[in-house]
């Protein structure tokens, strides 16, 4: 898909975020400025886009920038809900709805890539829901346990 110099010139400014840092990038006539200062993209850097993530490789380090879009915030899970960070199998469930848990308690154990991944309570509270069963294959982002 060709975005040529002309279109590049029309490219609106992009805001990217890593951690707490935001970078405002403008492209004007093929020249790139970051926060108003012209930069020269390093020759050996490599980058790919994946949805709103921009993966950048340079000298052995990898940076994951997130494109910030106005009016569309990335849906973040509720404070008390815990989900798998990757596809995994639920190996063991230690809690049931109504159970009181302390910060650091192991709520359930997932298994992925032959490793066990304990899911621990991020804070003290009560188990509201458990929405998985032992042996179930779960996908990332799907809520497994909710605390309140």
């Amino acid at each position: 898909m060709g975005v040529d110099r002309q279109l590049g010139a029309l490219m609106p400014s992009t805001t990217l975020r890593i951690g707490d840092h935001e970078y405002r990038v403008d492209t004007i006539d093929g020249r790139v400025t970051v926060d108003g200062v012209e930069v020269e993209p390093p020759q050996r850097a490599l980058a790919v886009a994946d949805g709103d993530t921009r993966w950048v490789f340079f000298d052995g380090e990898v940076y994951e920038f997130e494109v910030q879009r106005t009016g569309r915030r990335r849906g973040t899970a509720h404070q008390g809900s815990l989900s798998a960070p990757m596809p995994a199998t639920v190996r063991k469930i230690n809690v049931a709805p109504g159970d009181a848990v302390n910060k650091g308690d192991t709520l359930l154990v997932l298994e992925a890539m032959k490793m066990e991944l304990p899911i621990r309570a991020p804070s003290t509270g009560t188990v509201k829901t458990v929405s998985c069963t032992e042996g179930q294959l779960v996908q990332p982002g799907v809520v497994l346990v909710e605390l309140e």
Partner: peptide, 24 residues
């Protein structure tokens, strides 16, 4: 540690969404 990227790399990241980053 996760190092801070240089600002030039933010430029590379912004260009990755377009076709103007060569080879990628």
């Amino acid at each position: 540690v996760r190092p801070e990227p240089s600002t030039a790399l933010a430029g590379v990241a912004a260009l990755a969404g377009t076709s103007s980053v060569r080879s990628t």
